[in-house]
Amino acid sequence: MTITSPTAADPTPVSLRRRIELSVDGQPVTVHEGDTLLDACRQVGVEVPTLCFLETLAPVNVCRVCVVEVEGSRTLVPSCSRKAEPGMSVQTASDRVRTSRRMVLELLASSVDLSLAGDDVQRWIAEYGARADRHGPAAAPAAAGERDRARPGHHHVGDGLSAATVHQPAKRDNELYQRDYSRCILCYKCVEACGEDAQNTFAIAVAGRGFDARISTEFDVGLPDSACVYCGNCIAVCPTGALMFTSEADLRAEGAWDEDRQQVTRTVCPYCGVGCNLELHVQDNTIVKVTSPLDHEVTSGNLCVKGRFGFQFAQARRAAD
C-alpha cells in the first residue's frame, strides 16, 4: 500500500487532484497536488529517514531528520510537510542533506536513550556516520523531577566536559503504563494523539523551552491527578519506547521480554459496539501489550482504556483471585 498523507487533510479524491511533476535526485516523478516531497521520494523508492512523522497525525516537522535540498531554497526543507510544487528539483543525498541528517541523529543520540527506537534508527545512525561520543561522555542523569522544575531562560552553564542529556528516572505513577522521558525525542506525537489529532483530552503538553522542553502534565502532577483517561493512544504513537505498558517495561527489566516468543492475535474489542480492531501481543499465555492497526480506516490505531488495558485488568484480576 502506498500511503499518501494528504488524503486525510485534503478530502478531494486523489483522482480529481491536479498532477504535479517534479524531480527527485534527477528522476522525474508525478504526484498529486497536496502530496508532500516525502510522498514523492517514497514513490521513486528513495528512502528518507523520518522520526516525528506519522501518517495518522498532522505533520509537526520538528525532528528535521527528513530534510531535503530544494533548488532555489536558502535552507533545507522538511520533506514530510513541504508540499510538492511543479518543477521542483529535489536532492536527497547532497553533502548538505547528509550533514544535517547526520547531525540531527548525532544530537539525538548524544542526548536521548535511543536503544528502543527501532532498527531503522540504529541503521541510519550507522549509515550517516553519526557519532554521539564526539560530544563527550554523557552527563549524570537528572534527579527525579529536576528537569520538570527547570526555569525558562535560566540554566546552569557547566564546564562542557560532559554532554547534557535528558536522562532521568522513569515516571511510574499508575499501574498501566510508564513514562521514561530519558527516551523522549520530543516528537510531539503523544501530545497530538492526546489532543487535537485523536483523543481530545489534552492531558499532556510540551512545557518549558529549549533544551529543557519536555512533555508534561500541569505542574508535573502524576497521571492519576491529571486529565489522563488511560486510552494509551500516546503509547501507540511513541516511536522510542518512552511510553510503555507497565507489563512490557517489567518484562524488559527482568530481561524476559522476547518478541520472538510473542504471538500477535487480531480480534475485535468486545467491550462496546464500535468494534475496534485489537492486536493482542501474547507472551507465555499472558497478554503483554495491546495495539490497534494504524491503517484501520475508523480508528487509525486509537483505542479507549477498555480496549487498551481491559484485558490486562482482567488478567490481573484473575491472577489476584
Binding site: 528535521r64 548524544s110 542526548s111 531562560g153 552553564v157 557547566g158 562542557g160 554532554a163 529549549g210 533544551f211
Partner: peptide, 27 residues
Amino acid sequence: RDESCGQCVPCRVGTQRQEEVLARLLA
C-alpha cells in the same frame, strides 16, 4: 540555549552543544 523554543532538534540540542564547546574553550 536559553531562548530556543525547543521545538526542533538542530536548535534544541545544537544550542546546548554549542554552549558546551565554548565552555570547554573558556576553561
